[in-house]
Structure formats: structure tokens, C-alpha cells
């Protein structure tokens, strides 16, 4: 019974059941495999979240995004600028209550330095239907090397709860061929 003291006082000398031993070996090696597979994906995989991050005042980040939008603006939709940066350029996206700003137009197959940060609370960048999900913090500028591999209209929603407008916080990335 597991509710009484072990019958053998020196329980750590007891033999181990064969089935137990076999299972322990299997799960141990499976654990090792999963551990090394994460490391391996950094070499063989193309989806590894960047760790390049800078400290920044939220207001300074807002200024950066505004300057970027002004420089490359090509149009406007619902009062939000549409911005088409040259391929390979730095791209800035701002999270704030409750919008993703501005609208970005990217080229398929081109890689961009994609900057993410928040002007106020913590938000969740969620690109749909691709399903890429990244946390966005105020005060931290996160830079990701991003390469869209399909063209079309993509929605950005917020998936970190950020108050009553959380489900209204949307944005757009358009990928052209």
C-alpha cells in the first residue's frame, strides 16, 4: 500500500521492476531527443524566433514608426496609412490600444527586418491565417528577420488580453508577388 511506510526500510536498495526500467530508458532517451531536436532546428529549420531586442522608451518607438510610415506611405485605408517599404528594409509595426499600425505591404520571398513593440500595454501579435504568434511588450523593441512565403491579405489580431478593446485590435499585412 502506498499509504503505509515502505515495508523495506532501505527502500532505495529495492530492485526495480523490469517494465519500469524499460520505460525509464525509453522516456529518458525520448526526452534527450526532444531536447536536441530544439537545438537542431536552429540549424536545419527556418522558423526560429529571433532574440534581437533593444530597450526603448515607448514614445521613442512611436516616433520611429511614424517616421517610417511617413517615408514609405503609398495610400490610406480607414484612416490608416498603407506603407510599402523597399525589400530588405527595416519595417516597423506598432501595437497600441487598440490597433496594429500601420498597414504593411510586403513582397513575397523578400526578407525584412521586422520591428515590433508596444506603445502602452502588453499585446499579442497574431498573424492569421498563417498562425504566427509573438508577444509584444512596451519598452522592448523586438527585431525579427521575416520572409513572407505566400501572397495575399493577412489579418493581424491581438491575442494577449489588453482590456475592453482587445477583440477590436486588428491590422493588416498585404503580401504582393
Amino acid at each position: 500500500m502506498s499509504i503505509a511506510p515502505p515495508e523495506q526500510r532501505i527502500w532505495w536498495r529495492e530492485p526495480i521492476h523490469k517494465v519500469e526500467l524499460g520505460w525509464i530508458v525509453i522516456v529518458f532517451f525520448w526526452g534527450l531527443f526532444m531536447f536536441f531536436f530544439m537545438i537542431a532546428w536552429h540549424f536545419i529549420g527556418n522558423q526560429n524566433l529571433s532574440t534581437e531586442t533593444y530597450r526603448i522608451q515607448p514614445s521613442a518607438y512611436v516616433a520611429k514608426v511614424e517616421a517610417f510610415a511617413e517615408k514609405y506611405q503609398v495610400g490610406e485605408e480607414n484612416g490608416v496609412p498603407i506603407v510599402r517599404p523597399p525589400a530588405g528594409e527595416d519595417v516597423y509595426l506598432l501595437a497600441r490600444k487598440w490597433e496594429w499600425w500601420p498597414i504593411l505591404e510586403l513582397k513575397k520571398g523578400q526578407s525584412y527586418r521586422f520591428h515590433l513593440s508596444s506603445a502602452d500595454w502588453v499585446h499579442g501579435f497574431s498573424l492569421q491565417p498563417t498562425n504566427i504568434n509573438i508577444s509584444v511588450h512596451p519598452g522592448y523593441e523586438h527585431v525579427i528577420n521575416l520572409t513572407p512565403t505566400e501572397s495575399g491579405e493577412f489579418g493581424i489580431i491581438c491575442n494577449e488580453y489588453c482590456g475592453i478593446g482587445h477583440h477590436l485590435m486588428t491590422g493588416r499585412i498585404r503580401v504582393i508577388d
Binding site: 489579418g155 491575442n159 488580453y161 477583440h167 485590435m169 486588428t170 491590422g171 493588416r172
Partner: peptide, 24 residues
């Protein structure tokens, strides 16, 4: 979740959102 539906989310139809998006 595998289809992208966010947690803690009142309305996945996004009816009132500025840039609506259709979940499958």
C-alpha cells in the same frame, strides 16, 4: 487554437473591428 482562434476573446467574428478577418 490550431486554427488560430485567440484565447480570452469576446468575438471571433470581428464584426466591429476595423480590419475584419474571417476565421475558417
Amino acid at each position: 487554437g490550431t486554427l488560430g482562434v485567440p484565447r480570452r476573446y469576446w468575438d471571433i467574428t470581428l464584426t466591429d473591428a476595423a480590419f475584419a478577418f474571417e476565421f475558417p
